[in-house]
Nucleic acid binder design. Structure first.
Lengths: 238, 238
DNA sequence: GAGTGGTCTAGACCACCAC
DNA sequence: TGGTGGTCTAGACCACTCT
């Protein structure tokens, strides 16, 4: 069974979405909610905290708790979320997503890769490049490096389906975080070839490290996106 | 006085940074910490939760609480933080930051601005453009639109110091969130003139809405950054 | 002063993991 | 089975805002 505070949060969220709690007035106070849900005020507060971090409500000492007038539906490439670029998911609504393996090799890591993945120079890594297309149009070119030791039994066929599903479901590893830098850069030869870029077309580059729940880096990747297919969305709630 | 759980979180963070709690073994358990800090376990948990959202530690039921092997020092343009681009703060360590007002006008908003700021077509807006330089080198060009009604007494002199300080300290408004999209684009005429861009130099564009604590949009801005001065850092902890 | 959310206590039971 | 973190209780006092 889910925790009580989570089901209360869920219920309150529903009431907000269904306008039963209108955005024009404060929510019932914590004592009233505690009575209604037959629980303690601490538990109500835990539910509230949940909704606060989700950006749905905010609370003011001495005033009350309010619905955000303007909490947005996330769209496009939701960075705040937690899908770790099973990019398929992200773009599915745009059309048919396909993937093409451009390269798949094993080699030793360079210095930058060693420090990013926290491995030594003689720990082999997989190095693969994938092109993603939506309705046949190239969208992104992903260059990924992954320590061999972390993914036993890994092979090229996993690239064609989902690397993350393999890691999660077969190996039982949980992805718990990412570190990303996004920048603009000029297209290199590979971008021009596979993303069909012109010399003057900028490229949106995402450099990322994805790590497991204990902080072990799982992959280090550079993803290049065509500049005309959107951007990254970042939401920040005080 | 700060809340007890915050000072405990601060103290534990110090112990982690000073290696007194090494990353190789779990932290003392919550009962032991409660005894040491002469408080209840709930309060210790609140301190822990604080450090968890900061990405410094993680907890596993049945195992213990651990220091993240790999929590990074944020750098450059820290998006996870909350400084809302008093860009001065962000770049101060790079050198002397100066600002130059390129334009300052009042006009009516276009359609996109109306929907972004949730105002009507006849609600006037300030429209200003600022160039930011570090050690005399142009870094970013910011084009901002702000509803006149929200910032009484606003004038050009505020642009030369800090708009946010004026809004916060003089008007007493609190900024509580932002919605941002970052993308790559080709330089326009203004970028080439002020950022000293070549035709083929990409530009990193940040489109953002910053809103007040009740969800009222305060400003809608487009910030253009030279591509060779870094990128945006995004950290995500599961 | 009344009413709100923020914090804190001193316990309790449960879920999960390692041994 | 023992030890860990996760949740929960039924109160309490404090800080803040509004009237």
């Amino acid at each position: 069974m889910a925790a009580k505070y989570l089901s209360i949060a869920q219920e309150i969220k529903q009431r907000i979405l269904s306008q039963r709690y209108p955005a024009t007035e404060p929510l019932p106070d914590q004592l009233a909610l505690a009575a209604e849900f037959n629980t303690s005020r601490m538990t109500i507060q835990q539910a509230m905290r949940q909704l606060i971090v989700e950006g749905i409500i905010y609370a003011r000492q001495g005033q009350g708790t309010f619905v955000r007038k303007n909490f947005r539906q996330l769209s496009q490439w939701d960075v705040a979320g937690s899908d770790y670029f099973g990019a398929t998911e992200t773009w599915r609504h745009l059309g048919e997503v396909t993937s093409q393996v451009i390269a798949f090799e094993v080699r030793f890591p360079d210095e930058k890769e060693q420090t990013s993945l926290l491995i030594s120079a003689d720990a082999p890594v997989y190095d693969f490049i994938r092109l993603r297309l939506v309705n046949g149009e190239p969208i992104s070119l992903d260059m990924t490096v992954m320590p061999v030791a972390l993914v036993p039994g890994f092979n090229k066929s996993h690239l064609e389906s989902s690397v993350f599903r393999y890691v999660r479901e077969t190996l039982g590893l949980k992805m718990m975080g990412s570190y990303r830098v996004v920048r603009a850069c000029k297209p290199n030869a590979r971008d021009r070839e596979y993303l069909n870029c012109d010399e003057t077309d900028p490229v949106l580059e995402l450099e990322q490290v994805i790590y497991l729940e204990d902080g072990t880096p799982l992959e280090y990747a550079h993803c290049h996106y065509r500049y005309d297919h959107g951007g990254f969305v970042m939401v920040n709630n005080g």
